[in-house]
Amino acid sequence: MLVRVVWNDVPAHVDDQVGDGVSAELAGFLRDAVDDRPVRIAPSVCGVCGGRLFFVLVDDVEGGAERECSGCGSRAFVADSEEFWEDVDPGAAACPCGGEEFEAAVAFSLADDGSVRWVTVGLRCRRDGAVGAYVDWKIDYGPTDHLLSMA
């Protein structure tokens, strides 16, 4: 279920939506990290066990991310990352505190026609709660509706 977002300190677009289970800290950070387009912020949830904590590989050169559930070890790509993954050299996401286990969410920035234009992966460290945008990339093709279910 998606809900309309309103934050006291972060200007939110009237059409912003945040999925159930995204922490307020991570949702607010992602809203602040993206442009002024409307966003859909979706939580990363393991399709096998329903887990919400992950180890994450990111490629910040081409853009892309793969997550591994810390509960069951299943892996999934974020958005269209799999299409380019063979050609990249990803690294493990790590918090400045040394933590490598994260709550993950994805902000999909939307164009006026509702298509996805940017994908931003936000992570919240399980150890110290620090949040950050670890990778983002532009989407320059259509249709893009399938991406919205690939957080």
Rank of each mutant, 00 (worst) to 15 (best):
L110A: 06
F84T: 09
I41D: 05
R117Y: 00
K138W: 09
E62C: 00
P38D: 10
V131Y: 00
G99N: 06
G122W: 05
C46E: 08
G47E: 14
S149L: 11
G19Y: 06
S115Y: 03
A107L: 08
E101A: 15
S115D: 15
P90E: 06
S74Q: 02
A104Q: 02
V3I: 03
D9E: 12
A12I: 03
F77I: 00
D35K: 14
F54Y: 11
S115V: 01
S70C: 02
V10E: 07
R52E: 11
Y134M: 11
H146Y: 12
A65I: 05
G129C: 11
R37F: 03
P11V: 09
D35V: 13
V34Q: 02
D140E: 14
D36E: 13
R37E: 08
W7D: 13
A76W: 06
G114D: 09
R126F: 10
E66F: 05
D32C: 09
A42F: 03
A93G: 08
A92M: 10
A105Q: 12
R75C: 00
D113I: 12
D35L: 11
G71Q: 13
C69F: 01
V119E: 06
S115F: 00
G73F: 02
V39W: 07
C97E: 08
E25R: 14
S74C: 05
V18N: 01
D80Q: 04
A27P: 09
D136P: 00
T144G: 04
I139N: 00
D112T: 14
A130S: 15
V78N: 05
V18A: 11
C72R: 01
A104K: 09
M1I: 02
S81D: 05
D80S: 11
P90G: 04
L53K: 06
S81Y: 04
A76P: 01
D128Y: 01
V5H: 05
C69G: 02
G142S: 13
H13S: 06
S149D: 10
D136H: 15
P90L: 06
F77C: 00
N8H: 07
R67Y: 08
